[in-house]
Computed example of a mutant assay.
Amino acid sequence: MQYFEDLSVGETADFGSYQVTDEEITTFAEQYDPQPFHTDPEAAADTPFGGLVASGWHTAAMTMRLLVDNHLADGATRGALGVDDLRWRRPVRPGDELVVRTEIVEKEDWDDDSGLVSVAITTEADGEEALSMVGLVLYERREKA
């Protein structure tokens, strides 16, 4: 278990491997972001994307899954305060393989029980940056301040 005291600014990690499917793209979009370039391959062909692409919110959700499974599950996290600088850098398409990279960019005291850790998060799709954001994550302290 990693606590606030165990984390260092500049620490990096690469993890995950997630294959995106067209069925998953359309299922997510039909429920949460029903725009034609997310739900209809034929209609998507006539858009600037030239084909089916995942919703940015879906990309963020897949990123979160990889973070939880490969990074946060081993941390004494207490949730997050949000994200800063969320950007969708390139569309995610069916067949893309997602990988997540993290870097701790800042740590600060929060309260007697927790510290706030700013984590730069990048999701790559087939080696190209698809999403970037800074997560503001609360970590439990091993020892109370």
Results as ranks from 00 to 15, higher is better:
Glu11Asp: 07
Glu140Arg: 15
Pro34Cys: 06
Asp74Glu: 12
Leu7Trp: 13
Ser17Ile: 00
Thr102Val: 14
Gly79Ser: 01
Arg87Gly: 01
Glu30Ile: 03
Ser114Glu: 02
Thr12Cys: 12
Ala60Lys: 10
Thr123Cys: 15
Arg142Glu: 14
Asp84Thr: 01
Tyr139Lys: 02
Thr47His: 12
Val134His: 08
Ser55Asp: 03
Thr59Trp: 10
Ile25His: 14
Arg90Val: 00
Phe4Asp: 04
Ala73Ser: 15
Pro94Tyr: 09
Ser55Arg: 10
Arg90Pro: 01
Leu138Thr: 00
Asp46Val: 03
Ser17Asp: 08
Pro36Glu: 10
Asp112Arg: 12
Val105Cys: 08
Leu66Trp: 06
Pro91Phe: 13
Ala145Pro: 12
Ser17Tyr: 06
Asp85Asn: 13
Asp113Gly: 05
Glu128Gly: 08
Trp57Asn: 02
Thr102Ala: 08
Gln2Thr: 03
Asn70Phe: 13
Leu138Ser: 00
Ala45Met: 09
Met1Cys: 02
Val99Leu: 02
Val68Leu: 11
Leu81Asp: 07
Asp85Ile: 01
Gly95Ala: 03
Ala125Asn: 08
Gly50Cys: 03
Ser118Met: 01
Leu138Asn: 02
Val117Glu: 02
Thr63Val: 06
Val83Gly: 04
Val105Gly: 11
Val99Lys: 15
Pro36Met: 05
Pro94Glu: 06
Arg87Tyr: 04
Asp40Val: 05
Phe49Lys: 08
Asp109Arg: 13
Trp88Cys: 00
Val137Asp: 00
Ala54Cys: 04
Leu98Tyr: 11
Leu52Thr: 06
Pro34Ser: 06
Ile104Ser: 07
Phe15Pro: 01
Val9Asp: 03
Gln31Lys: 14
Glu30Asp: 11
Ala73Asp: 11
Val53Thr: 10
Asp96Phe: 05
Thr12Gly: 05
Gly127Lys: 09
Trp57Arg: 03
Val100Asp: 09
Glu140Pro: 00
Val137Asn: 05
Thr39Lys: 09
His38Ser: 01
Trp57Phe: 13
His58Leu: 06
His71Thr: 02
Ala13His: 11
Val134Asp: 06
Thr122Ser: 11
Phe4Thr: 00
Gly127His: 09
Glu23Asp: 14
Phe49Leu: 03
Gly95Met: 05
